[in-house]
């Protein structure tokens, strides 16, 4: 299968400390790929480096083009999109304005970007809240808005950083359903998650990171059956998903 997105030997250093060491990964169109790992394994740093938010060494290719030295906004123009862990919404602007800005890269030719109607069909809650300020939304609504805002930019590769963080289980399920639906639209997804159980259910392929490096990779089904994954990540999370966790 052709490789839409490929990172080779990516290293990110904060001063002398290498938070990500020589990570290589690939994502094909219409596939959901997940990166698992404990807190501090370097997952968020990796995503930020792939998006250009953090400087990195190594090769980052998208659709045959070398992106490694391009700034964030050029990578957005190429078709990459990142939903960061903190969502980074425009808190003092309305839900509708947030969405419209999601399609900013198509300014002057709005018919090519995503439409508000499509996003409201996908997330009806946002339609009810369209005049409300983004900062007043609940955690689940914020994640929906972040996803809808990213989709307005019609990305070809969508990277999500911990979309389930701080959300109630029902909303996590909805978010994961939306991620799975993207597959049908030919969007490639790179999903970083601590919630390994939910991530492996939706993903086709997975990488496991530990201490800044990829220690394991494989088809989701194989990972779900892998003894190390079950013990380290699925086991831990089984205890972790008790009711106290949901914030919504």
């Amino acid at each position: 299968m052709s490789r839409l997105f490929e990172a080779q030997d990516v290293t990110v250093a904060y001063g002398k400390i290498e938070a990500v060491r020589g990570v290589s990964l690939a994502v094909e169109p219409g596939r959901v790929v997940t990166v698992l790992g404990a807190n501090g394994a370097g997952k968020t740093t990796l995503l930020n480096a792939l998006m250009g938010v953090l400087p990195a060494r190594g090769a980052i290719r998208f659709d045959g083009r070398d992106l490694a030295r391009l700034p964030v906004e050029e990578r957005v123009a190429a078709g990459l999109s990142l939903i960061p862990e903190r969502r980074e919404l425009f808190a003092t602007m309305s839900v509708e304005d947030n969405l419209r800005l999601g399609a900013f890269r198509f300014r002057g030719r709005p018919q090519e970007g995503g439409s508000l109607e499509a996003m409201f069909a996908l997330f009806p809650r946002l339609k009810e809240r369209r005049r409300q300020l983004a900062g007043t939304l609940s955690g689940g609504e914020r994640q929906m808005l972040a996803m809808a805002r990213a989709l307005m930019g019609r990305p070809r590769l969508l990277m999500l950083d911990e979309p389930s963080l701080g959300l109630a289980p029902l909303i996590v399920a909805e978010v994961m359903r939306t991620v799975a639906d993207l597959r049908g639209q030919g969007v490639a997804v790179l999903l970083v998650e601590q919630n390994a159980r939910a991530a492996l259910q939706v993903a086709d392929y997975g990488y496991v990171m530990d201490g800044g490096s990829v220690v394991l990779e494989g088809e989701s089904r194989a990972l779900q059956a892998d003894k190390r994954v079950v013990e380290t990540y699925l086991g831990v999370l089984a205890a972790d998903t008790e009711p106290a966790r949901g914030v919504g």
Binding site: M51, V53, P71, V72, E73, V76, A77, S81, L82, P84, E88, L89, F90, A91, T92, M93, D97, L101, G102, F104, R105, R149, A150, G153
Partner: peptide, 15 residues
Amino acid sequence: MATAVNRLGARLMGI
């Protein structure tokens, strides 16, 4: 305005 509100968020939208 978006750049003023959230610089990183704006960059991620290609602004």
